[in-house]
Design a binder for these strands. Structure first.
Lengths: 157, 157
DNA sequence: TTTGCATGGTTGTATAATACAACTATATTT
DNA sequence: AAATATAGTTGTATTATACAACCATGCAAA
């Protein structure tokens, strides 16, 4: 009986396993820097870039259920890193912005992360770097497109 | 005040966010096929390939603490998909092998997964496929190398 | 050979992440 | 005005997971 997948799928499986291993840090409960988890930094960073953001936008970014978003955001508000205001256009919605403290912490964690990113960069051949990053973007996009139809990876909205 | 990372790090951050999003399926508690979660399939598949495996080898594969491995493996034994035997060379160690049922389920889930993988494959340009997969392998390797020194992503042993 | 340390694994306990369902309040459509 | 949809929160339950303590066996050094 054939219990193995074909080579091509074995290759893909190995890549998924690898991705699962290296993204473990992203879902680790322990704060990796300045008392902020990776998930929380994702929120801070997204808001730093967009200046302000609604909670509904975060669901997609974090790929979690909306109640989970609330619970990830709350501690950041309690720590005074985020401030929430009513959105002008829609009084149901909450707009999140960084406080001064939030900006400071975001910067500190960015530095901490920069050290890690630098190490990663040092471990890939410099001449191939743009192609490698582009390849990963393509791959991630491919998974997102495929996942929509598959319950195993259905994208949450 | 500069709260943004430089472009290069922003690029990497986006990639980590993307990876975090698409690997969500790998840690979803819900079984995606045949009552088996992705994590559990990782175990079945690894054993299918190596024929037999010790629990200690699984810690690294799954990148989890050893007690977690025990708890991931147990339900598979209870469902009769895995059998454990004492290792010959070391009577402390447990050797895991697939049962007939385990092989059957492994194959079924493989098929289910193959459908997903096929969709992914269809979403990447065929001529670039080998380079893309290779690029990802390099990237994953780079992260693993870097992570060793960084508490944020320290590899568990 | 005995003593002490290392290794493979399990179990107790606690916590974090997370989903789902039910709910409130506001918008939008009919 | 009524029905439906959307933004967000809270109650509740479950899963994943770690850490520490533990047992048993193996190995190395005294």
């Amino acid at each position: 009986m054939q219990t193995r997948m074909n080579n091509q799928n074995t290759e893909l499986m190995e890549i998924f396993v690898g991705m699962s291993q290296v993204t473990r840090c992203c879902r680790q409960d322990v704060a990796f820097c300045e008392g902020v988890t990776f998930h929380q930094f994702m929120i801070l960073d997204a808001i730093a870039i967009k200046k302000e953001m609604q909670i509904s936008e975060l669901h997609k970014l974090l790929a979690v259920e909306k109640s989970t978003t609330t619970r990830l955001v709350n501690p950041l508000i309690q720590k005074g890193l985020l401030k929430r205001e009513k959105a002008q256009h829609d009084s149901r919605a909450a707009t999140l912005i960084l406080t001064a403290d939030g900006k400071k912490i975001h910067q500190k964690v960015s530095l901490c992360l920069a050290g890690f990113f630098q190490k990663v960069t040092q471990n890939i051949p410099q001449d191939k770097k743009p192609q490698i990053l582009e390849a990963i973007r393509i791959f991630i996009g491919a998974i997102k497109n495929s996942a929509a139809d598959y319950s195993c990876c259905k994208s949450r909205v």
